[in-house]
Simulated scan of single mutants.
Amino acid sequence: MKLVYAFDAYCGWSHGFSATLREVVSRHPELPVEVVSGGLFTGARRVPIRSFGYVAGANARIAELTGAEFGEPYERLIADGSFVMDSEAAARGLAALRAAAPDRAADLAVALQRAFYVDGLSLSEAATHRKVAEEAGLDGDAVAAAFEGPEARAAAEADFRRTASLGVEGFPTLLAVDGEDRVTALARGRADADDIDRRLAGLRTTCALTP
Rank of each mutant, 00 (worst) to 15 (best):
Y5N: 05
F7G: 06
Y10D: 10
C11D: 14
G12D: 07
T20F: 14
V25R: 15
S26M: 08
S26H: 14
P29R: 07
V33Y: 06
V33E: 07
E34L: 11
F41Y: 15
T42I: 14
G43N: 12
R46V: 04
I49H: 02
S51H: 15
Y54R: 02
V55K: 02
G57Q: 13
A58L: 13
A63E: 11
A63P: 10
A68Q: 07
E72S: 13
P73W: 07
P73L: 06
L77Q: 06
D80V: 05
S82D: 10
V84F: 12
M85V: 07
M85F: 13
D86I: 09
D86C: 07
S87P: 05
A90F: 00
A91T: 00
L94Y: 10
A99I: 01
P102G: 13
A105K: 04
D107C: 08
R114D: 14
A115G: 01
F116M: 11
Y117S: 07
D119Y: 04
S122H: 08
L123C: 03
L123P: 05
S124P: 03
V132R: 02
E134A: 12
E135H: 08
A136W: 00
A142W: 01
A146R: 11
F147A: 05
E148T: 08
G149F: 01
P150W: 06
P150N: 08
A154R: 14
A155M: 04
D159N: 08
T173G: 04
D178M: 12
D181G: 05
A185I: 13
L186Q: 09
R188K: 12
A191R: 03
D192A: 05
D194H: 14
L203G: 03
R204K: 13
T205V: 07
T206D: 06
A208I: 03
